[in-house]
């Protein structure tokens, strides 16, 4: 395990390092002055020369990069070009708002996707399997923005169950502190906490549902195929020959091994989740990273673009690292295979 841990962590650290190099080079790739892109201070402003000195603007690239790194880790990510708010503090709130959406959607996807996948696998090529699988195929193929439109039309406009945009009704006066609306409601001093919570939940249902559907269908398909494959494996036959009940064979042998093989494909899941979160946040005007990024691209707010990209990439790398570590910890055969190929 130690060897596996060290290997994974070092890859992660190198990847993060490359990421910072990339985001640093973005300052030069973006149009305009690199120092402005880094700090959000324009060349004509008074403190430009000060910032220039702080960021070692007149020294060579390597020195600039080191200074960039120092500021990055100190949480000084510059100011927004459009409204001069500090990018890091803003970003943190957007980050939490996105995470709330993404983690809830992931939970929904896992809770419904995996059992349905197992269900379909046990009824392999029967009618119920075909029904579930066609549904999954359709759910996986539907463009997320169209699905969002349809569901908004149905639930928000026709039925009026859920609000169309935003995190919470501003009348409740919940001050954004962490960015995650459910946590914010708990932290708020409002006397209408219960109502505020209900309103927040009402707002979050639709985006979470829409965001969850595609990953859920993906998980369902992956899980069904993996479970079905495992049910054909010799060790499952041996377990059956031992007279174990079908349920026990499934729970003890087929599912853990199927989960192991599904976990190898989570990269796809996360990238799907994050891609869709960008679209969903824009549609629902959810104050998350995706919405922030898209807006900043329109406004050419380069410090924010940079920060959002950095956060997105970091989240993906972190998710994948956590999954890999869990994978290696729970399933020793993974470590065995990895170490053998290293």
């Amino acid at each position: 395990m130690t060897r596996y841990l060290v290997g994974r962590l070092s890859v992660f650290i190198i990847a993060v390092f490359l990421l910072t190099v990339f985001s640093f080079s973005l300052n030069y790739l973006f149009p305009g002055d690199p120092i402005t892109n880094m700090t959000g201070v324009r060349t004509f402003q008074n403190n430009y020369s000060l910032v220039m000195e702080l960021r070692a603007g007149d020294e060579n690239i390597a020195a600039q990069y080191l200074h960039y790194l120092r500021h990055l880790f100190a949480g000084d990510w510059g100011l927004s070009l459009s409204n001069s708010t500090p990018v890091f503090a803003d970003g943190l709130q957007h980050f939490m708002a996105s995470m709330e959406l993404i983690i809830l959607a992931l939970l929904v996807a896992v809770i419904f996707g995996l059992p349905l996948g197992v269900f379909a696998a046990t009824r392999f090529r029967q009618r119920s399997d075909k029904a579930v699988i066609s549904l999954a195929m359709m759910g996986y193929s539907i463009p997320v923005f169209w699905l969002a439109q349809l569901l908004i039309l149905l639930f928000a406009i026709k039925l009026g169950w859920f609000p169309i945009t935003g995190q919470i009704n501003p009348l409740y006066g919940v001050e954004p502190q962490t960015g995650s609306i459910l946590i914010d409601v708990f932290l708020s001093q409002s006397e209408y906490k219960a109502e505020a919570l209900q309103d927040a939940l009402n707002h979050i249902v639709l985006p979470v549902l829409i965001l969850a559907i595609m990953p859920m269908m993906l998980l369902l398909r992956l899980m069904r195929n993996a479970t079905q494959e495992m049910l054909q494996k010799p060790f499952v036959k041996a377990a059956r020959a031992r007279g174990l009940s079908e349920w026990r064979v499934l729970v003890k042998h087929a599912i853990p091994n199927a989960v192991q093989s599904v976990l190898q494909q989570t990269t796809l899941l996360f990238s799907l989740l994050l891609t869709n979160s960008i679209v969903v946040e824009s549609i629902f005007n959810w104050p998350g990273m995706g919405n922030w990024l898209i807006r900043s691209i329109f406004e050419r707010d380069y410090p924010i673009i940079q920060a959002a990209v950095l956060m997105f990439a970091f989240v993906i790398l972190l998710f994948n690292l956590l999954v890999e570590l869990y994978h290696g910890w729970r399933f020793p055969i993974v470590r065995h295979e990895q170490n053998a190929t290293d």
């Binding site: 990238s271 891609t275 960008i278 691209i297 990209v309 790398l317 994948n320």
Partner: peptide
Amino acid sequence: SIPSFLMALIIIAI
């Protein structure tokens, strides 16, 4: 593992 959509966004931003 970084999604292609994000990469496309970055390139468009540039």
